[in-house]
């Protein structure tokens, strides 16, 4: 009689498989690694961040790490899931011992694996550019990155599971650009007009950007931002459970 492989093995296999799929995709590498690196260099060589107190690189690096989270968890993972849904891959894999929960766990592993690589590459480049992160905030930053990954993965799954893959592609890429430009990721919202600022604080992107800046500049754990990220995770996950279509 046939038997399934153990759960941990199935999930790890799927995680490795999805990680490799993301790393082999040229467009995904562009948005996950190349564009964040360009943003990092751009923010260091231009005076865009000079109105704030910290140095350019100390302000830029946490923001770019937050942008990396959006690249992988929302845009990369969302697009991959959307097309897998179109081609029936989600349906097929959910008939294997992997199942629906195994598929989702595999995606979470893939997002965290790719983010590890991003942190190494982007963080390494930032250190070369003179970044001096607050040592006391590294653990807090790690927690915030995981919270951010959870919020944006849930949002990515929600979009990928409810609209056509072409629309997922357009929406998640557009969101990446909008959030990078005006979503409180790279530029603290304190610099925006007063009418926009209160709204912007509720965005998951602002919460993640602020949380990482609090941790890596001031060595502080930003509780409010963490609560906002958790709230987005819960809301988007509930919506995804309710509306996600597997085919």
């Amino acid at each position: 009689m046939s038997a399934p492989a153990p759960l941990a093995r199935r999930v790890l296999l799927q995680g490795r498989y999805e990680t490799l799929a993301m790393l082999r995709n040229g467009e995904q590498l562009l948005i996950a690694i190349i564009l964040p690196l360009m943003a990092l260099v751009g923010l260091v060589v231009t005076p865009l961040l000079d109105t704030f107190t910290a140095s350019r690189i100390d302000l830029a690096a946490p923001g770019v790490l937050a942008l990396c989270t959006v690249s992988t968890a929302l845009t990369g993972q969302g697009i991959a899931t959307g097309f897998d849904r179109r081609y029936g891959v989600l349906r097929f894999l959910s008939t294997t011992p992997l199942g629906q929960s195994g598929l989702i766990l595999g995606k979470i592993i893939a997002v965290l694996s790719v983010m590890t690589i991003q942190v190494a590459v982007v963080g390494g480049a930032a250190l070369l550019l003179g970044w001096q992160p607050a040592a006391g905030g590294l653990l807090a930053a790690l927690v915030q990155l995981v919270l951010g990954a959870a919020a944006f993965t849930s949002l990515g799954l929600l979009i990928a599971g409810t609209v056509r893959p072409e629309a997922t592609l357009a929406i998640t890429n557009l969101l990446w650009v909008l959030l990078a430009a005006a979503g409180g990721i790279l530029f603290p919202v304190a610099s925006w007009p007063d009418v926009y600022e209160p709204v912007a604080h509720l965005l998951p992107s602002t919460a993640l950007g602020d949380a990482l800046r609090s941790a890596l500049i001031e060595a502080q754990f930003n509780v409010l931002a963490s609560v906002i990220l958790l709230a987005w995770t819960v809301l988007a996950s509930l919506a995804a459970i309710r509306w996600f279509k597997w085919s």
């Binding site: 097309f83 081609y87 029936g88 891959v89 349906r91 894999l93």
Partner: peptide, 9 residues
């Protein structure tokens, strides 16, 4: 499955 259910890449 009818549509194959295979990843394309």
């Amino acid at each position: 499955l009818q549509e194959g259910g295979l990843p394309q890449a």
